[in-house]
C-alpha cells in the first residue's frame, strides 16, 4: 500500500514537474479598455525578456487581438517562475465606432477599428473560459471601479476558480484612489502600481510569484 502510494506520488510529481517545465501557466491580463494592460504587459516583458508585447495608446481598443509572450521567467528570492503573459483587448459590452472619430480618425478606419475590437473582445472572453490559468485584473485607479463590466468579469473569473490579483494602476496620477478599488473587491488582494513609471513593480512581481508560481 505504502509502496504503491509512494510510486503514485512520485509519478504524479514527475508529471507535475513535466508540466511545469513545458507548460508555463498562462496569465491573462484583463480589464476595461485603456486601463494600462498593454503598458503593464510591455513592462513585464521588457523587465524579464528584453522586448515588448504590443503598442500602447490613449485611444481605447488599441489592443484588438490577444497577444502572448511566452516563457517569461520571473526571478524572486533565488527561485524562478515561468509564465506566459497574455495581453487582451479591453472588455466591454458595447463598441460605437463614432467615438473613434473624435480621435481624428477617418470613418473607414474607425469602422475597421470597431470591427477588430469586437472580434478581439469576443476572443478574449473565449480565452477566459478556456485558456487561462490565472488573471491580472488591471484597473485605472483614477476611475470608478463599480462598473458592470468589472462586476461581471470578476464574477466570471471567480466562477472559474482562477487565481486573480487586482492591480490598481496609474497611481502616479493625482486623482488615483486605491481605497475605492480595495472597497470594490474586498475579497481579493489589490496591489497599487504605475505601469507607466514602473512604481511598485517589485511587489507586483512578488505577488505574481506567490499567486501563479
Amino acid at each position: 500500500m505504502g509502496l504503491i502510494t509512494d510510486i503514485r506520488d512520485s509519478i504524479s510529481r514527475s508529471i507535475a514537474s513535466l508540466f511545469s517545465a513545458e507548460d508555463p501557466k498562462r496569465i491573462g491580463i484583463y480589464g476595461p479598455p485603456n486601463a494600462g494592460k498593454t503598458t503593464l504587459a510591455n513592462r513585464i516583458a521588457r523587465d524579464w525578456t528584453g522586448d515588448a508585447i504590443g503598442p500602447e495608446s490613449h485611444i481605447p481598443h488599441e489592443t484588438r487581438r490577444a497577444r502572448r509572450k511566452e516563457n517569461v521567467e520571473i526571478e524572486r528570492d533565488g527561485k524562478s517562475v515561468t509564465i506566459d503573459v497574455v495581453d487582451t483587448p479591453g472588455v466591454t459590452t458595447k463598441v460605437d465606432y463614432t467615438e473613434f472619430l473624435e480621435h481624428d480618425m477617418e470613418k473607414d478606419d474607425a469602422v475597421r477599428r470597431s470591427r477588430e475590437a469586437t472580434e478581439g473582445v469576443a476572443e478574449a472572453m473565449h480565452w477566459l473560459r478556456e485558456d487561462v490559468d490565472g488573471v491580472l485584473y488591471v484597473l485605472d485607479s483614477t476611475k470608478d471601479p463599480f462598473t458592470q463590466v468589472n462586476t461581471m468579469l470578476v464574477g466570471i473569473i471567480e466562477s472559474q476558480d482562477l487565481p486573480v490579483l487586482i492591480l490598481a494602476n496609474k497611481t502616479d496620477l493625482p486623482e488615483s484612489n486605491i481605497r475605492r478599488i480595495e472597497n470594490a473587491f474586498p475579497q481579493h488582494e489589490t496591489i497599487p502600481l504605475s505601469a507607466l513609471e514602473g512604481d511598485n513593480m517589485d511587489e507586483v512581481y512578488d505577488k505574481i510569484a506567490d499567486y501563479f508560481g
Partner: peptide, 30 residues
C-alpha cells in the same frame, strides 16, 4: 457568470456599425 461571459461574446459578434452598438447591462454589484 458563464452565461454572462457568453452574452458578451455573442453581443460582440453581432455589433454592426450604424445598426447595433451592443448592450447596456446592469445588475447590482455583488
Amino acid at each position: 457568470p458563464d452565461e454572462e461571459s457568453k452574452l458578451i461574446e455573442v453581443t460582440m459578434t453581432e455589433i454592426s456599425p450604424d445598426e447595433f452598438n451592443g448592450i447596456e447591462i446592469e445588475t447590482y454589484p455583488k
